[in-house]
Design a protein around this nucleic acid. Structure first.
Lengths: 142, 142
DNA sequence: ATAAACTGATGCTATATTAGTATCAGTTTG
DNA sequence: CAAACTGATACTAATATAGCATCAGTTTAT
């Protein structure tokens, strides 16, 4: 079981990078190099984040990506939703006609409950929160 | 994001069925019909459960599957582990040499934490527990 | 004794998801 | 005007998920 796919993962790392260098334009290439991500893949990921107005871009030499959303308001669950869709069972048909064995839907309820929990946890995490923890870690332990 | 894959899901439903009809041999075909699962797929799933000594089988006419494990001790997390492997990031290389950007490993820690949470929740659920909830539901609601 | 209903073992196919690549057009800067 | 960038788009590769088919052997009822 994987909670995060690569695109979500890379997106978050890129956002962390952009938060650290706020106000600056960082090129996809430099981010990819620094965080060791596949360049073209990162580019397609960034285009998504642009669509969602989380980052903006500037073309040409000295262009690149810049954070426009408030990192304190970018929840990890938002990024997950963008790249992995809703946290939910894909083909659960409980309560409707199809699933006649309503009995086993108890299982569904439990899964839903746990999904909500996960959603909630990822909702509490923000990009800013992560950045803060990183800087603490760097100051603290050797 | 899907917490359970089909094989895990079918396995749990089959175990519920076997718990309800404990001591009896139920054929894979009858379980598949009742719970509307693909017959051959269910068969391969049951073979796994046999390997893990959760159910036993009897060949021939009137043969089938029977629960041998205590349903109160079959945790849902066990079934997940059988069919989906450990709940963990597949390719996290934090703390080791490969991941040099140790900064972002803060993300890893958080994910690990949430994974543990999920694991723990699924560890609290047992087949028996689900069966109990089902029977309550049947008595209760209209 | 034999047909029908079953599992054992095994190997295959189909589909979807995930991960990543490539290319061409256009923009900006030195 | 070349180099360093993004926009748009389409493609490929790898892996995981879901499911099917087949043959061999076992048990039971008739």
């Amino acid at each position: 079981m994987k909670l995060l796919t690569k695109n979500t993962d890379y997106a978050i790392r890129a956002l962390i990078e952009l938060t650290v260098h706020k106000e600056e334009y960082l090129s996809a290439r430099s981010i990819a190099n620094k965080q060791k991500m596949p360049f073209q893949f990162l580019r397609s990921i960034m285009q998504e984040l642009i669509k969602y107005k989380i980052v903006s871009s500037k073309e040409g030499v000295k262009g690149g990506l810049k954070l426009i959303a408030d990192p304190a308001k970018i929840k990890i669950v938002d990024i997950i939703r963008i790249f992995q869709g809703e946290i939910e069972l894909s083909d659960c048909m409980f309560q409707q006609k199809i699933c006649e064995n309503r009995k086993t839907c108890v299982l569904r309820k439990e899964i839903k409950r746990i999904e909500k929990l996960v959603e909630n946890e990822f909702g509490k995490l923000t990009v800013k929160g992560l950045v803060k923890k990183i800087s603490k870690q760097e100051k603290g332990g050797k």
